[in-house]
């Protein structure tokens, strides 16, 4: 019952998101045909362009055509790119790249924050804690795209193992993708890692003072056992929750960083589309990001339910 209700809400959200994306774009000033073909295009060319992109239909019918196509992965044709390449094809080609970079950044942020947050919590009140928490506040304060450049400047130019520009697709070479994606992923991960480690530190400190931790110590269980199975295990619940909430900011970083590092993902596609006022591309990209956020939210909720038995009954 809860699952079907959840699926219905999810579907409705996607549908509502699609409507917002579509009609907001329609409301934008300017004629897409004229902006694609130029102000002085021949009328018969404009008419052909409109017919090709369904722009001659009434708006409601345009939406119906678009949404029914979108459900099958057909988002129409690009207005500007490669002589009207199907947008669905563009998205399908670039989604794995964005998924790779996003996941890479998420994993880096997870690893960094687990170390920083745990060390800070375990050394609470010492100089090490102050250092770690200061790094965390600094991390939130640095714009990720700027950090990306500084990383390139100081790491790639001095340590030639990391390429400073360009990206090897994970489908071509996984080690190459891991290496060429490292600096971009690190730039996206830094502000996330900062937020995550602050939450983890606070959660660990909170759990450490719970009575059940004292009870377990009173049973003579080793501190590493108590930390792993009890303190860390319970602190994971708020930690995973915050990761879910931050995914939408992480994807914002992905958009900028893809562009900065020349990574051919959905983000750089959307920025290209924005420059060309390529409506079908922008609509499809926005909708793809919506689905990614909803998908991760669902995953995080399921994960939280696994982690927190109290959340399962609800």
């Amino acid at each position: 019952m809860a699952a079907s209700r959840r699926a219905a809400v999810l579907l409705l959200t996607v549908l509502a998101g699609a409507m917002v994306v579509f009609f907001a774009m329609k409301a934008a000033p300017g004629d897409p045909a004229l902006s694609a073909l130029g102000e002085n295009a021949r009328p018969e060319l404009v008419a052909a362009f409109r017919r090709l992109h369904n722009l001659d239909l009434p708006v409601g019918e345009q939406f119906a055509t678009w949404i029914s196509g979108a459900l099958r992965g057909d988002f129409g044709r690009s207005l500007t790119l490669a002589g009207g390449v199907p947008v669905g094809q563009l998205i399908a080609g670039r989604l794995p790249v964005t998924a790779f970079i996003g996941l890479y950044a998420l994993i880096l942020a997870g690893v960094i924050s687990m170390i920083v947050g745990t060390v800070a919590a375990l050394s609470r009140g010492t100089a090490l804690d102050t250092l770690m928490t200061s790094f965390a506040v600094l991390g939130v304060s640095m714009p990720d795209f700027w950090l990306g450049y500084v990383l390139v400047f100081f790491l790639a130019l001095n340590l030639p193992i990391f390429p400073s520009y360009g990206f090897v697709s994970p489908s071509d070479s996984l080690p190459g993708a891991l290496l060429s994606g490292f600096l971009p992923a690190l730039a996206i991960a830094a502000p996330m890692a900062a937020v995550f480690s602050r939450v983890l530190r606070a959660a660990l400190l909170e759990v450490m003072h719970r009575p059940y931790v004292q009870v377990q110590r009173s049973l003579g269980l080793s501190s590493s056992f108590v930390f792993l199975h009890t303190i860390f295990r319970n602190a994971l619940i708020p930690y995973v929750t915050i990761i879910g909430l931050q995914v939408r900011y992480l994807l914002g970083g992905v958009v900028v960083i893809e562009r900065v590092f020349g990574i051919p993902g959905i983000g750089s596609l959307m920025v290209d589309g924005a420059f060309g006022r390529d409506y079908p591309v922008i609509q499809a990209c926005a909708l793809t990001f919506l689905v990614i956020v909803l998908g991760t939210n669902l995953l995080v909720d399921l994960l939280c339910a696994r982690l927190d038995p109290k959340a399962r009954g609800r």
Partner: peptide, 24 residues
Amino acid sequence: FRPLRGRELAMVFQDPVGSFNPAK
């Protein structure tokens, strides 16, 4: 001293609900 806890000296606490790891 740690091995003595539990095996030699043990304690029952005031708050039974709070005495258990809620995740397990």
